[in-house]
Design a protein around this nucleic acid. Sequence first.
DNA 1: CCGGACTCCTGGTTGC
DNA 2: TGCAACCAGGAGTCCG
Length: 308
Amino acid sequence: MPELPEVEVVRAGLAPAVSGSHVASVTVFDERSLRRHAGPSEDFVDRLEGRTIVSAERRGKFLWLPLAAPEPVEARASTGSATAEALVVHLGMSGQVLLRDRTTDDRLTRIRLELDHPDHGPLRLNFVDQRIFGSMAVDEMIETTDAPGALVPSQVAHIARDPLDEWFDDRLFLDRLARRNTGVKRALLDQTLLSGVGNIYADEALWAARIHYDQPTSTLSRPRAKLLLAEVRLVLEKALGEGGTSFDAQYVNVNGASGYFSHSLNAYGQQGKPCPRCGRPIIRESFMNRGSHFCAFCQRVRAPRAAG
DNA sequence: CCGGACTCCTGGTTGC
DNA sequence: TGCAACCAGGAGTCCG
């Protein structure tokens, strides 16, 4: 469900509350939410309890909370470099992270963390997920190859930087895109090429750039590819500014509030309604087991210009 | 490398 | 009203 703007809203809401917080206790209500954790749920709990959260980070749709090195324990005498770890959160299609007081329950809470913040006091973090495509995991941090000295959780290592990341390399992206032999929407959804874009914002950016979703990437001119990247950035930034896209109570920020971007959608979910640009109806076609929404007039597959 | 099929799931909405 | 079919913001794996 949530794409970059929604995940970033969650990260930003989480950061001040969790940074410096001590993990007092952890309860796993449904082990299926630990699908991406390498060990059993006891291991997940053991690795979290007693730790201190340092900050809240994000790459694409992945969120993680780096953990300070654990307090040295006799039984586990420090034999040198401890591996850095983080609590990794992916919201999947229906995940939510809700910050509550110690008495508030939420329906469909799969995992709960009780936190103590040195200034804000006791706090409860409920990981809620209807469909259980999301997950939490304690993962080790490893070095990335795409920026000097940066660490990311191992399960995020294959994810490309997102277009709002200061280290995102436009030229690298455009070169890789041009070398792909696939449709442009498929490429936008490929998190190893650029991250953070999902079905909503792919459709919105393609509509804004007037590009058909199945236009072969190899036939996109460099200026049109640049335009598309610019439109991706614009739509992500605008959605972020409006607190993300909420269709119902499925996507909310850490306080349970909805975003407003659904009022600004031009193509996604607008099938049958007039294209805001030309007035012809927006079409929905089945694509990659989901919907693709576009204007059949504004967004047509273009033949590449003849070379020479 | 590419595309398609299929997997993990629950629950709200639509249609008969 | 009841119930089945369909739909949903993601992402991984496997196979041809």
